[in-house]
Amino acid sequence: MVSLAGEFTKGLWKDIPPFRLVLGLCPTLAVTKSCLNGLGMGMATVFVLVCSNIIVSMLRKVIPKKVRLASYIVIIASFVVIVELLTQAYVYSLYQALGIFIPLIVVNCIILGRAEAFASKNTVVRSALDGLGIGVGFMLSLGFLGAVREILGKGTLFEGSQYMIHVFGQSFEPFTFMVEAPGAFVCLGLLLGIMNVLGD
């Protein structure tokens, strides 16, 4: 019997995506050009994950087994549409920065995975906490990866906000490779390796 707090905290280290639960790689690689983009994407994912987990868990006795995956996808897609409209209305710059990766939250395997593996078998409170834990874990990972890539690739942190810091001072020659696609793959690969060392 895992305690309620345990449902939340397992997403923060034991099962932290995408490092431990290697899912949801596309948004991870695509939006982490800067720390803020990563956090923004993470927040959108947290919202969808928590809401869809709650609804899936509430309906877990109503949805017939045979059409469960299609039903989960409709539930998830509805929340993605809500996120899409909200970001478009209130944080337009984030909406533009994330581009097609907002509609693509629908096919983020973390969300469907949690619906199938957890929310369809557990109570509403547990499912909400599970979604929150995994979601916040994902958000922190994206923020961290974004920070690493932004610091090395541009020499700044929190670019695009009033809190922007020049980490290495103005004369720093940016390591542009890190903010391009190859840097994303290499950086995530190396961080996964580091996580494996820390986890053992």
Binding site: V22, F177, E180, A181, P182, G183, A184, F185, V186, C187, L188, G189, L190, L192, G193, I194, N196, V197, D200
Partner: peptide, 19 residues
């Protein structure tokens, strides 16, 4: 190296391919 086996080295290879 053991920590890099599996997905990690796959991603690094993909990065070099992207380059």
């Amino acid at each position: 190296p053991r920590p890099l086996q599996g997905t990690a080295i796959g991603l690094v290879t993909a990065g070099l391919m992207a380059l």
